[in-house]
């Protein structure tokens, strides 16, 4: 059996995984092997992981929506309820806000306070418009007697779309805080990291909305 064994000497490669005998000099082959990554990478990476977990949270609501879409309890379905015009405006607001958020990133990269604030304000206003339209849609549905307690289908609809709305609202609070922080704190590293996370969050919400727009509104209104 010892014939089959392989010695594990210092720096040897008993598992034949490619790194040869070490000379004591660390091999910078990436993946953190050259030591800890810089703070900016760590913060962005960590926030990405958070966004992934958030996507999983949404996927649960998407799953329940697709399971419960036929559970109308004698109540109305997507075709009777959804107004694609409203949704189109909402989508436009959110996509434009992503664009202006991208403009903020450019301004922040140039440490231009005025343009950072202006583009952030535009992003915020578009976000507010989106939320306003969504609340308006929800209130309209409730007024029609198609509130979330009407049927399991409406339950899952309100929960899925509402969950996104809550995220956007939280994003708006964060956006307001960022707008206060840029003038108060200047473009220092921690603030820049935080803005990186914010922009990731805002764009991710857009992507989720594309999913909602497709699964809930488009497919809902084109299929019987």
């Amino acid at each position: 059996m010892s014939a089959a064994s392989t010695a594990l000497r210092a720096g040897s490669d008993p598992y034949h995984i490619g790194h040869g005998p070490s000379t004591g000099v660390p091999e910078y082959t990436g993946h953190g092997a050259g030591g800890p990554a810089p703070k900016r990478i760590v913060v962005g990476y960590g926030f990405w992981i958070f966004i992934l977990s958030d996507v999983i949270l949404f996927s649960c609501f998407f799953a329940t929506y697709t399971v419960l879409i036929e559970a109308r309890n004698g109540g109305p379905g997507p075709q009777q309820l959804f107004d694609l015009h409203n949704t189109a405006v909402e989508t436009a607001c959110l996509l434009l806000s992503s664009f202006s958020c991208g403009m903020t990133s450019l301004a922040v990269a140039r440490h231009n306070l005025l343009w950072s604030e202006i583009t952030l304000a535009i992003t915020g206003l578009l976000g507010l418009t989106f939320i306003g339209l969504e609340v308006h849609e929800f209130l309209g549905l409730v007024a029609q007697g198609a509130g979330p307690t009407r049927s399991a289908f409406l339950t899952s609809f309100f929960a899925l779309v509402g969950c996104h709305g809550v995220h956007v609202t939280a994003g708006l609070l964060w956006l307001g805080t960022m707008m206060a922080q840029f003038p108060a704190k200047g473009f220092k590293q921690t603030i820049l990291h935080r803005y990186l996370c914010f922009s990731l969050f805002w764009h991710a919400l857009d992507i989720i909305w594309i999913g909602i727009f497709t699964v809930v509104y488009l497919i809902g209104t084109i299929t019987p």
């Binding site: 010892s2 064994s5 392989t6």
Partner: peptide, 11 residues
């Protein structure tokens, strides 16, 4: 004692 027995394809 076989302190170096850490890998064996057969095993």
């Amino acid at each position: 004692r076989l302190p170096d027995f850490v890998y064996s394809g057969r095993v």
